[in-house]
Design a protein around this nucleic acid. Structure first.
Lengths: 225, 225
DNA sequence: CCTCGACCAGCAGGATCCTCACGGTGCCTC
DNA sequence: GAGGCACCGTGAGGATCCTGCTGGTCGAGG
């Protein structure tokens, strides 16, 4: 999930961004309302987390402007003030939720999930399965045929990306964007290298291969054939 | 607080869920007894609010099944019928409280708060075990392979947090919130320092290690490799 | 048989993590 | 209230390990 974080306090921003990234999300950051609005209008975010008090352009105005520009992305406001009046103001401006500082990160995460219209925690997909390969997203473990497989962070993201698109050919460009956050061509064989490493761990010694190369196109993960 | 709401009538469910969320709780929802039971057995709820009449599996049976599965979470039943006989039935099944529809939301909230403050009647977990490591929460003692281990308060909380999530990777952010009550990034190596100290006491000299670091993610406690 | 894409071993740089010594804080004792 | 002690957070320095790149090799497809 791609989340836009607009927060001027560096400490809070770092904390939130770190937590979100640990939870597997991609975070775009802005330190003031002007930059925030710019990024927001770029679109492509699933949720925005916006501080009310911001330099240059306050959070309320930023969200109003974004809404006026046709951006419908759900918004959660962060604020030091927690009065009812503020809450109404925030919701009026097009905010969807509201969180008073200081807040527990776990709560923010729960609200983000709620807003993104994802089913609540217990119901989300937490286990991906392709053939006899199994990935538990919460425990962060991968098991094939009963044997645990240890993966590096990047390998884990790569495998997750593939497994979420079982049977679908995934292009290099998709991988570079979704797994590496590269929005350009590195002109190296990063992807191939990691697919190779992944194969050694996931496919080698298990007989049937799951990761297949589609020449000229990309890769697929698939249980059959 | 995390609340499980099991209610098939969408209107009532929306109403209750919204109210609870506004009161600062996190709400997990299910529309029938089967889903409800599934979520309930996932654990982690402080209170369950359950309708008596549910599709697939009625509320009473659901709670009985949950109790049988070792779930001690307090339950409040919602019901259209308000007879004394029903009340007894509900309490017999393992319900803790009872509310007849239509009800005032404020009353539900009050009862939830009352229930959550009460220590659950069933025997709660007082001993955590991971491999040959054993933590007694009441005596505040830790024993591994028959040898007693003395831990400092913070070390104890840290180990407890890990053990309660055996096999699950715990991020630094989770630890900072759950063990330190920090809602910001201290930008120091507090966590690492304490994990290090904990390891010396818990793992050193016991051969097999229980606390593992997952680079780029966090830590896990696990008995096997 | 030639060409181009794919594969992968090896390596260096850098990010992450571990450990340790130090000092601050709060509590207890006298 | 001074002194001592236990506990904990800080930050530096070093160890470890991940990761992206290079370049040689392989093999499919034409």
């Amino acid at each position: 999930m791609r989340i836009l974080l607009v927060e001027d306090d560096a400490e809070t921003a770092d904390y939130v961004a770190r937590g979100l990234e640990e939870a597997g999300h991609v975070v775009d950051r802005a330190a003031d309302g002007q930059d925030g609005l710019f990024l927001a209008t770029g679109g492509g975010h699933d949720v925005m987390v916006v501080d009310r008090m911001l330099p240059k352009l306050d959070g309320l105005s930023m969200v109003r402007a974004a809404r006026a520009a046709g951006i419908a992305t759900p918004v959660i406001f962060l604020t030091a003030r927690a009065g009812v009046g503020d809450r109404v103001e925030g919701l009026d401006a097009g905010g969807d939720d509201y969180l008073a500082k200081p807040f527990a990160f776990a709560e923010l995460l729960a609200r983000i999930n709620a807003l993104a219209r994802r089913p609540p925690l217990q119901q989300q997909v937490t286990v991906l399965r392709v053939g006899d390969l199994e990935m538990d997203l919460i425990r962060r473990t991968v098991i094939r045929a009963g044997r645990r497989i240890d993966l590096q962070p990047r390998e884990f993201r790569l495998l997750e990306y593939l497994m979420r698109r079982e049977g679908q050919v995934v292009t290099r460009t998709m991988l570079l964007e979704g797994v590496w956050d590269f929005h350009f061509d590195p002109k190296t064989s990063v992807v191939e290298t990691h697919v190779s490493r992944l194969r050694v761990k996931v496919d080698k010694g298990f007989g049937r291969e799951l990761i297949h190369t589609v020449r000229g196109a990309g890769y697929v993960i698939r249980a059959d054939g």
